[in-house]
Design a binder for these strands. Structure first.
Lengths: 314, 314
DNA sequence: GCCGCGTGAGAAAACCTTTTCCCACTTGAC
DNA sequence: GTCAAGTGGGAAAAGGTTTTCTCACGCGGC
């Protein structure tokens, strides 16, 4: 039995008698034969391997994206190198070089912020690069959440359940997503209540509520928070003031970070950026590029989804 | 210039004139030559790739372990396939097969619980397997945190700062770590206060404090909590009751999950399991095994470290 | 002046697949 | 019976690297 015959039998290629083919397959299964992906890759120029580059240390954004990528690609036999590069350009370069040496079919770059580049230039690689939740280069394919639509979703929901004085407590104004969410907030809620910019922490949420409630005049009847941590801090501050959530004030967060959103009392209604779906699409896209299928460059905004828990009432 | 001469020049092997060697190296650098790791691996039987298998969806344990592995192995040119397998045996098998096909040099299995196996049998693979933070098989190498020592660290600290009535609020008794921590707690603190077993959530921490404070008689002056989430729930409950932390009650958590521990008010003193170090050692061990260096099988317990923040006072 | 040895460089095999090409044999038709 | 066409199987090359083996040449010693 020659090697080539065996190969053709297993791959259903070439011409041969069906009983020969079956026999080869049976014996291969018996001895547990598995082709060596290295050798196969050497010839086919496809390693069935991609690299995921991230500077998101906590994995809060990366992990769902990774799950989506893996989910989409495991059916295609593709495995994923995860490379956490902090914000270290030298480390990033080492990882990129290592991935290229290993002949990855493509690279997905992901981060923790839409408007930041990774500390390494991926623009002139000979493998396709797709950006997810991080800023891409000219003519690249970039996937991001539609923060404007997400914010709109949240504020519209608050209006729909009858809230009229919606305040917005959010992160630093330098963040692109912050500005985009604030823009949508203003469009839907008008300019009756202020936007409070701060940092992404619980303590800022807490402090912002203090500021709002110390002001004279009518208090807000709803808070749209820039992330779940801020929302959680706000809930705590409201409880301390004796303000009831959701009876007196409705509250919506952003991120749907389970560990924060679901454990808050009451559990937070929040905006989910569908990062897993984002990862899935990024994975399928880099695969398409690796296989030479044409992909239109540009920024793809994926819709967010409102996760309704108990912090809004209704 | 023959291929073999070039190879020998770049690898500093073989006999050749030093000026030839230098010339080859210079030109290689000029044209940006990088050897194909697939071809190299095909011959050397070393792919400089390992697989990390995990069923920890949140990545709370996996991520630090992964960081440690990557940190230790990047210097050796090793990349890591991350495979999240949930608790799905079929998915696990697919990922394991994919990794073996890709000729990984070894596999590190990690999980979210010391006393649970991954839903796939890794015992008869022809590549080395190291277990980290999950139960291994007979004769395997397993790395785990020393929960007993960690708990002792916490309770001794509470005693040292003058607390005498230390209660222990923790997770489900089926967990090995829970029993081990409770054992150490009893050894150090005696049996004056009860151990409250429950679940790993904030709400259980909250409820447990209710239970403790509803009982007649003297209240605890310290709480040793089974994880940071329980501790956080406990802090909230204490605040609601007007009990001051750390003035009236000192409180220690477990896990040092930054996002919970550092954002609690006051920030939690807690026990860190040094998962990154655990990952680092697991990485170096699997590398040693891959290179054929002998490694003593058995369970290696790594010491925990107490992270002092503000929830214990002085 | 010849032989042997040492030195530098290249040829070839090996790693494991896939794919192309070719050969031999069978079968059918005339 | 002969030829053509078609069919089943094998040989060989390719992919990029490392390693072992071989070869040619120059130099020193006798």
């Amino acid at each position: 039995m020659s090697i080539s015959t065996a190969s053709k039998a297993l791959n259903d290629t070439g011409r041969m008698g069906s009983e020969t083919r079956e026999r080869v397959k049976r014996i291969a299964a018996e001895i547990g034969y598995r082709p060596n992906a290295l050798a196969r890759g050497l010839l086919s120029k496809r390693s069935f391997t991609i690299g995921l580059l991230t500077n998101d240390t906590y994995g809060r954004f990366t992990l769902p994206v990774m799950a989506g990528i893996s989910d989409a690609l495991v059916d295609h036999g593709v495995s994923v190198f995860l490379c956490a590069i902090e914000d270290d350009p030298a480390l990033a370069q080492i990882h990129v070089d290592a991935m290229l040496d290993k002949q990855v079919d493509g690279i997905i770059a992901t981060g923790k912020r839409l408007d930041r580049r990774l500390p390494v230039d991926l623009s002139n690689l000979h493998v396709p690069v797709v950006y997810a939740f991080t800023e891409g280069t000219q003519n690249s394919v970039t996937f991001r959440s539609d923060d404007e639509q997400g914010a709109r979703l949240a504020v519209e929901w608050l209006m729909k359940i009858g809230r009229r004085r919606v305040a917005h407590i959010t992160g630093p104004q330098e963040f692109f997503s912050v500005r985009e969410r604030a823009g949508a907030y203003h469009e839907v809620a008008g300019h009756r209540e202020p936007v409070l910019y701060g940092v992404w922490s619980e303590s800022w949420g807490h402090e912002a509520v203090e500021q709002l409630w110390k002001r004279p005049g009518e208090k807000p009847d709803a808070l749209f928070c820039g992330n779940d941590q801020i929302a959680r801090g706000a809930v705590d501050a409201l409880r301390e003031r004796g303000v009831k959530v959701p009876q007196d004030v409705s509250l919506i967060g952003f991120d749907n970070w389970e560990i924060v959103a679901a454990q808050t009392r009451p559990p937070l209604t929040t905006v989910d950026m569908e990062l897993k779906e984002l990862g899935r699409q990024a994975g399928l896209t880099v695969l398409a590029l690796a296989e030479g299928r044409p992909v239109e460059p540009g920024v793809r905004k994926l819709p967010c989804r409102l996760i309704v828990r108990q912090s809004c009432g209704g």
